[in-house]
Design a protein around this nucleic acid. Structure first.
Lengths: 236, 236
DNA sequence: CGCTCGGTTGATGCACATCAAAGGCTGTGG
DNA sequence: CCACAGCCTTTGATGTGCATCAACCGAGCG
């Protein structure tokens, strides 16, 4: 399932994250004391909602989804964490911390896991680092807000908005794609709708040549029509 | 509209908040340096979404709503802040911070406003305080998650859940009521539905004697049926 | 007195859910 | 090697919860 690596190997990647931007290599090793780098396969569960939260994590490569089960036992996806994102940091200061969500790997991914005490004793004593953590949380919060305010928009706009939000421009090929293996079901679970509705919308777009899907990797071929659909509310 | 008071008068209330629980009066005054206590009337706007965020706030009395406008210009309510809650703290560490939401007083309320520099220079250098701030944010995040995961439940459950979430037991009369002036429109804007739908549900409950409304203050007369409705998903 | 604002009710329609069925693809085990 | 199970995707037929639109009432207020 999962394998451990030395933290040392991950130092170059870690240093490249905004989170650790002004931190020397020595400091970085102190901040990662007792840490382990774990390699997860697709769908590996990292943290389970409700479990005692003795560790927090920093995503290094790949991607992770944060989700909960709703009243019917269906998955509700809260957030997608990318490399450089922290998970479970916010609950560390609680007296008896519990993970509020399930954290699951999407595709083969790596995460740095650190004990709670490290957060309390080292991380929280460094204002610049705390500032970065809060900025990450702030942008996660902003994404939640945006999903919430779009809740009453037509589903077409919401799917377009999500895809554009998650897509990144490949620096080489200049192609816009979504850097995580994402099924239609997961898109539906993020927007709190059914798979069928998402599929009806996205297969239209595929037929129109706006997007393609290869090995559950979604590419956006034509940005502008999607941006248009995202805004379209009153189509007179 | 709004009036200023000396911070000194608010010290007893501030000390009673979990946020400042282990902080001496002298320390408290340092943490509130250059602060002002403002008194807001119902519907006064405190921060406007998009404005440069030079201040953050601590709610002292009354209540505040955090909201944004959606694509159609309708209000979407993100959160209700109660006494002891912080607002705009999360965006303080950004290089060029902007308020992500509108903050509006609900009823006559008081808020301690503090300059951004105070957060950066004093608050962030106190790990226990940062811990408390993160706990507040964590519970706000949890409420957002809960609204999100209930999105596909029948509206009846969602209204019941919101009312129960916001209600507090009066320590004297042992009556459960919602400690903020809340219109049906605001409930609708929190759940992202229309007023009419909320009204249809709540007037049923009023007729059944489950709730009453006096001067836009909602009282819950009978908890258990509402709790039942909240859970009810499959009503066979 | 006319105004606005919050609450209420009814008639009608639509966007999305639900249910059903089927095909492709992957991995697993006989 | 094939049979089978499970997951993802797709499509169509049908249903319904909530939105939309319209109208009205009562209370507070300049």
């Amino acid at each position: 399932m999962e394998t451990k690596l030395s933290v040392l190997n991950a130092v170059p990647e870690l240093s490249s994250f905004h989170l650790f931007k002004d931190i020397s290599k020595d400091d970085l090793l102190q901040l990662c004391a007792n840490g382990t780098v774990k390699v997860h396969q697709h769908r590996d569960l990292v943290f389970r909602s409700g479990d005692p939260a003795n560790f927090f994590g920093v995503a290094i490569s790949g991607a992770y989804k944060l989700s909960k089960l709703n009243h019917l036992g269906h998955e509700s996806i809260i957030y997608f964490a990318s490399p450089g994102d922290v998970v479970a940091a916010l609950v560390m200061p609680a007296k008896v911390p519990e993970y509020p969500v399930d954290v699951t790997a999407l595709g083969c991914s790596r995460m740095l896991l650190l004990p709670r005490e490290i957060y309390i004793n080292y991380w929280m004593k460094r204002p610049p680092l705390i500032g970065c953590v809060q900025q990450l949380l702030s942008s996660r919060m902003a994404r939640l807000h945006s999903l919430k305010t779009m809740q009453r928009a037509p589903l077409t706009s919401r799917v377009a908005s999500l895809l554009l939000d998650l897509s990144q421009e490949d620096t080489q090929t200049r192609v816009h794609c979504i850097p995580l293996p994402l099924t239609r079901k997961e898109i539906a679970d993020t927007l709190e709708v059914t798979v069928e509705s998402v599929i009806r919308i996205m297969s239209d777009w595929t037929k129109q040549g706006l997007i393609t899907t290869k090995d559950s990797s979604i590419h956006i071929l034509n940005l502008d029509p999607l941006k248009q659909l995202m805004r379209d509310v009153t189509t007179p």
